[in-house]
């Protein structure tokens, strides 16, 4: 088997995650889709690390995880505060970006 298959898998997962962001309306699920996209890119980075034979790819994947953790913390806090004020976790209910 060619390790390139890992890259195909990563691409597939990334695409599914992106479609999920577009389709799902629950803000939490939306966030989970973003996490899936990040994980897919991590998989690609790990595979590239193996391709090139150095660990830099893994380091970047590691940093991605840390940043993702930080992002999730802040994002969920935002979801909670939105839910408190609007009593809904649906992103469609808060079309406040329109004037």
């Amino acid at each position: 088997m060619n390790p390139v298959n890992y890259l195909y898998l990563a691409g597939l997962l990334f695409t599914i995650g992106a479609s999920g962001v577009l389709i799902r309306r629950n803000a939490i699920v939306l966030f989970m889709c973003v996490e899936l996209m990040l994980n897919a890119s991590n998989l690609a980075l790990v595979t590239f690390s193996r391709l090139h034979g150095n660990l830099d790819g893994q380091i970047i994947a590691f940093f991605t995880m840390v940043v993702a953790a930080a992002e999730v913390v802040v994002g969920l806090a935002i979801i909670v505060s939105i839910f408190r004020t609007r009593h809904s976790a649906s992103v469609d209910d808060s079309n406040l970006m329109k004037l």
């Binding site: 992106a18 962001v21 577009l22 309306r25 939306l30 992103v91 469609d92 808060s94 079309n95 406040l96 970006m97 329109k98």
Partner: peptide, 14 residues
């Protein structure tokens, strides 16, 4: 296009 829905903007970006 400017409907204020975040998913719509995400679609544009995608």
């Amino acid at each position: 296009i400017q409907n204020g829905y975040v998913r719509s903007y995400a679609l544009s970006m995608f």
